[in-house]
């Protein structure tokens, strides 16, 4: 079972934050097939958010085929996201660390590194989708 939290300043809508948290948990192996998600009432009681928000998040996850709702019982994980890429995480993290060290040597501070990474990431994404 996982516990949700909301970041009020992130600008990301609450339902999306819930979706992302489930996906992240699936990706990192915190949730696996058959696990139950917290009930709507639990989430609502804990976060003081609108039940429709939780329902919408669970519907989206269901739509993505990640979870299934069993009426009267709860919502359960049907598929994990810990696919074969997990094995590639180690080498990728290593090269990212090397890149970071290189950036620091070039004199970039944290803010500049972040800005550079995001800008590159976004332009790469937009090129792909274009």
């Amino acid at each position: 079972m996982i516990e949700f939290h909301l970041d009020g300043r992130s600008g990301v809508s609450p339902y999306l934050q819930l979706v992302q948290q489930v996906r992240r948990a699936l990706r990192l192996g915190l949730l696996s097939k058959g696990d139950q998600l917290p009930t709507v009432k639990d989430v609502v009681g804990q976060l003081a958010i609108n039940p429709n928000t939780v329902l919408k998040a669970y519907r989206e996850l269901e739509h993505d085929g990640l979870v299934a709702a069993r009426p009267g019982v709860g919502t359960f994980v049907t598929r994990t996201l810990t696919d074969n890429t997990l094995a590639a995480h180690g080498p990728l993290r290593l090269s990212l660390q090397q890149w970071l060290a290189k950036a620091r040597r070039a004199g970039l501070d944290d803010e500049s590194i972040e800005a550079l990474f995001l800008a590159t990431f976004r332009s790469a994404v937009s090129e792909e989708t274009a």
Partner: peptide, 29 residues
Amino acid sequence: QDLMGAVADQQLSVVLSSHLVSDVERACD
């Protein structure tokens, strides 16, 4: 939290007033 729990349980429609958005931001849709 409690009010939202009741909403989840009973399928209520709710109208709540406040002079602060932050009070109701999460609770309302």
